[in-house]
């Protein structure tokens, strides 16, 4: 019963990931894409943990989730710092 529930929950989250993917592909500027990727990363953490429950091994999957959270955070920081210094291509912003 609870397995079905958590399976449904992760499927719904995956649907939300698909929706956010639209922003990553379409997003008028690079910053929108970074936000989209960051959002997808956060959702993925939730999915990983729920998957861990489905396999009955939450304690292992939590470590993966922790690592994923770390990489997500460092990645977002690195990307935003990089584009803060380099500058965003504003023409792609206007082109929408």
């Amino acid at each position: 019963m609870s397995a079905t529930f958590f399976l449904g929950a992760s499927l719904v989250i995956l649907a939300a990931v698909t929706v956010s993917l639209y922003r990553v592909i379409r997003g008028p500027s690079i910053i929108d894409r970074i936000v989209g990727v960051n959002v997808i990363g956060t959702k993925t953490i939730a999915v990983i943990v729920l998957t861990g429950h489905l396999f009955g091994r939450v304690e292992f999957f939590v470590d993966i989730a922790l690592l994923y959270a770390l990489i997500n955070f460092v990645g977002a920081l690195a990307l935003s710092r990089y584009f803060e210094r380099k500058g965003v291509d504003v023409t792609s912003e206007r082109a929408r």
Partner: peptide, 28 residues
């Protein structure tokens, strides 16, 4: 799980702020 939750509670707004600052410094 609670440690991961605490970690997200600290890092997520920090990442959001970093991205927002990048957007602002680029005068978007």
């Amino acid at each position: 799980l609670l440690i991961v939750a605490l970690f997200i509670l600290i890092t997520s707004p920090t990442a959001t702020h970093a991205i927002a600052r990048a957007a602002r410094r680029n005068r978007i």
